[in-house]
Design a protein around this nucleic acid. Structure first.
Length: 577
DNA sequence: GGAGAGGGCGCC
DNA sequence: AGGGCGCCCTCTCC
């Protein structure tokens, strides 16, 4: 368990948990804190151990397994380490895959923030995020600041296990799913998303023109910029500067508050059409243009870094390459290899279904029984149109108070009182500064000290009106956050369960070799992509349906709410949906 | 010249 | 007065 001053302290510790015995009985392979020794252990012994297990599984004599007590018929070993994201990518590069793990860092974060954690868990000292590329900085940092004492991983594991033993089953499930997700995240980043450079370049050329010399804009952007400058009578304008653009638009007589596209769309002026097109294309160029391609796509693969629980709600985030924001227009470059297929699956109306299930709203469960929840809400007579259902529910889950969404909300609340009551209660807790939690027990972060001080100032005697207004606004904002948190975090748990179950099913059926077998390559909140040899594609598609249903049962039992997915077999990502 | 804030926009 | 992100750009500040 590393604490604060990264590399010199006990960096890793690979521990084998003896699951059979019930007791922890962990074996610390190397607890010396010597980084080099630990890395050697990770590289050498782990593959050796895996190989030994494989021999054992085939009934052959195991050659010096690292842990001799491991029986061939036992559950596969669960490797315990401080941080999957630090160790697993390197093992994958060495050709080693792991079936199960226990991630001390992710588990600690869950335990320390969960209201469901059994009393008595004292969190580990803060575990600093550490990645291999920042080792130089970390080492420098360490020279100036001595590391606090570290905790041995076996002790950390014991502390966490003992807290989990007396915590609700949901929290144990969440901890297991979180670690499984961490393995899947590293494996997806390692395998990479199949990406056709030629297709992407063709697309860029058709939309932007030829690739410009370094430091120049593409021809199409240049022309549009000239047209805008012309129409505004401002030959030197820099369209990439919102402040300057706003000033110029105003001096051209246009009444605008911002330069956002949706506001500009309402205007009639010869500069507007080319300006909107400039914004769209400029975005493509800077976010997913040739530079992006050079930086992120190698040997036909885009290798995003997925960060499990990178968002407080438990959603994943990503680092580098903007993996979770791949714009629709570039998805045609995501293509299966020759002889392979992509199976693209996304959950239908995940968040409202999650809300229906967790709130136990039977009317909404009935509405969800057709494939389309929003249409179901129309069919039971709650609202007139599908659009009303959709925007009304989004408003309920996001805290929208204006427009069409606010108008239909009262009707939705009458038809589905438990679902709406559930998010309302979460909002009220947030407004009062109280935390909320997901179904399985992920806790929401507490509001900041500044937030509390503001609330206190507003409830003091004769507060000034500005403070009252600010406090009210901050309270509502926290309420919107907690309102959304309960749904978003539980939806993330469903998705995590789906990933874990699908990953397990794929491994069981096809093995773990991503060069020959179906494997996960992409995940975005409620959508998964598997890359598979064509002859397995239909089978994989069926597995994706089945594991989605299993994920619903795992979280909610035999709930009346189904969690259907749309899953299609395609060659290119753009063909899905 | 690097850090950080803010505008804006892509995704769910 | 709509939840969560990451990333690119500009601009200000040190």
């Amino acid at each position: 368990m590393d604490v604060g001053g990264p590399r010199q302290t006990c960096l890793v510790q690979i521990v084998l948990e003896q699951l059979d015995g019930g007791a922890i009985g962990a074996t610390e392979i190397d607890g010396t804190g010597n980084e080099k020794a630990i890395e050697r252990v990770a590289r050498e012994q782990l593959p050796a151990f895996v190989a030994a297990r494989e021999h054992a599984g085939r009934g052959e004599a195991a050659s010096e397994p690292v842990v001799s007590e491991q029986r061939a018929d036992a559950q596969p070993p669960r490797w315990v380490w401080d941080d999957t994201a630090v160790w697993y990518p390197e093992l994958l590069r060495a050709g080693v895959t792991i079936e199960r793990c226990f991630d001390l860092r992710l588990t600690d974060a869950l335990l320390r923030n969960s209201p469901h954690t059994a009393a008595g868990y004292s969190a580990l000292p803060a575990v600093q995020q550490r990645r291999h590329h920042d080792s130089a900085d970390a080492a420098l940092f360490h020279l100036e600041q001595p590391a606090p004492p570290s905790m041995a991983p076996v002790a950390a594991l014991q502390r966490q296990q003992s807290a989990l033993e007396t915590s609700p089953a949901g929290l144990r499930l969440l901890v297991a799913a979180e670690s499984a997700g961490a393995l899947a995240a590293a494996e997806m980043g390692h395998a990479g998303l199949p990406w056709r450079r030629d297709e992407h370049e063709r697309l860029l050329a058709s939309m932007l023109g030829a690739r410009p010399a370094e430091g120049y804009r593409p021809e199409r952007l240049e022309r549009l910029a000239l047209a805008v400058a012309d129409a505004l009578g401002a030959p030197t304008i820099n369209l990439d500067s919102p402040a300057e653009l706003l000033r110029t638009l105003r001096s051209a007589g246009l009444a605008v508050e911002t330069t956002r596209s949706h506001e500009l769309q309402r205007l009639r002026h010869p500069a507007i059409a080319p300006l909107l097109e400039y914004k769209t294309l400029s975005r493509l160029w800077s976010a997913n243009g040739w530079h992006w391609l050079d930086q992120w796509v190698h040997q036909g693969r885009f290798h995003p870094v997925f960060v499990p629980a990178g968002v407080v709600s438990g959603r994943w985030s990503s680092e580098g390459g903007g993996a979770l924001q791949l714009p629709a227009v570039v998805r045609s470059a995501v293509r299966a290899d020759e002889g392979w297929k992509l199976i693209v699956a996304d959950a239908a109306q995940l968040e409202p279904r999650v809300l229906a299930a967790m709130s136990g709203d039977s009317a909404m469960a009935r509405a969800s029984s057709s494939g389309d929840l929003y249409q179901g809400m129309v069919d039971v007579g709650a609202v007139e149109t599908r659009a009303q259902a959709k925007y009304g529910m989004l408003g309920a889950m996001y805290g929208g108070t204006t427009g069409e969404s606010a108008k239909v909300l009262p009707r939705i609340a009458r038809a589905f009182p438990r679902a709406i009551g559930f998010v309302e209660a979460a909002a009220q807790r947030g407004e009062r500064g109280m935390p909320v939690s997901s179904l399985l027990g992920r806790g929401s972060p507490e509001p900041s000290e500044a937030w509390r001080e503001l609330q206190a100032a507003a409830s003091a005697e004769s507060p000034d009106p500005v403070t009252v207004r600010r406090a009210r606004s901050a309270a509502r904002s926290q309420g919107r956050f907690t309102r959304n948190f309960v749904v978003q975090a539980t939806a993330a748990e469903w998705a995590l369960a789906w990933i874990a179950l699908l990953r397990g099913a794929l491994r069981q059926r096809y093995g773990a070799d991503h060069t020959t077998s179906p494997h996960l390559v992409f995940f975005v909140h409620d959508e998964l992509i598997v890359h598979a040899p064509a002859h397995h594609a239909e089978d994989v598609r069926e597995l994706m349906h089945r594991t989605a249903a299993d994920a619903g049962r795992l979280l909610f039992g035999e709930s009346a709410v189904a969690f259907p997915v749309n899953a299609v077999v395609v060659d290119g990502y753009d063909e899905a949906k």
